[in-house]
Amino acid sequence: MTNSRLFVPLSCVLIFSVLVGIGFIIPQWAMFLATMALAKGLVALGIVILMRAGLVSFGQGLYFCIGAYVSGLMANWTGITDIVLLSILGVLVSVILAAICARLLSGYRGIFFAMLTLSLSMILYGALSKMSIIGGTDGLNVSAPTFLGYAPEGRALGFSLYFYTCLVSVIAGGLIRVYFNSERGLTTLAIRDNELRVEYLGSSVKSAISSGYIMAAAVGGLGGVIAGLAIGHVDPEYAYWTTSGEFVFVAILSGFFSIGAVFASSIVLEVVRSFSNLYFPNTWQLVLGVFLLIVILLLPNGLGSLFSKRRRKGGSE
């Protein structure tokens, strides 16, 4: 990275301006697609945080679902529709739940970690499916959000949501970049390589993994809040393991070197999904599976490694 401490904030402002600019020219369906892609990109970003510690979470759908249900239930029960308030609540609930789960999970690695995270999200899926007071498997509808008192409709609503999503995505991305570059961030990367050494240097691997997991839950919950509001409907499918599988897919496609690549991969996935829904309605998973195998085989470090000078011979930050 560059030495200037202004680099991260400046690139955030630049990216945000470009995104909003694009918002003025694209049609409404594309804006919805971009909103969803960014929201899901946030969830995938959580997986990338954990990937840097050498872990793959197959259950980020858990927090995606929690965030979505928080926004849905709050709107239905208390009438709160303010998107900022809902985001804060969604993140808060996710973080609290993650802090509890982290105690169990931080002792596990590799496939155990992957499968346990998967199981946790499936518990939520099972529980929600059985709870008929909040819609059971049908889920529930979410009313349109308001933005600090502003209650847009139609295209203005779509644009406001897109604007908000760009804003929080860029802020979250910037903060996570700062974390990746930080002392803790580097230690996490070291854990991926050699956990034993990190313990012997006096750092707690468990606490590093727990904090990564909690951060991942926070962005997962945030993505869920936005997705729930954008779609206007939530159901237990948000916590289903194939939903989590798509987030993993995005993380694998992007690799863990570039945060921009995470959102780019998420957009790629949404675009491919739209087209394959249109032209090959019954082979979406086939396309996804083949794509996944190709990426793992040909791009082991993800799209991000194509743009990052990070891993080149002799290259340094």
Binding site: T283, Q285, L292, L293, I296
Partner: peptide, 26 residues
């Protein structure tokens, strides 16, 4: 993929799972 990480192989089998799902539908 045998020389790759355990988790990578899990992901490969996940890819196979997805492919089989649609192959069955076809």
């Amino acid at each position: 993929f045998y020389d790759r990480d355990h988790v990578v192989i899990v992901l490969v089998t996940y890819g196979i799972f997805l492919i089989l799902e649609d192959v069955m539908k076809l």
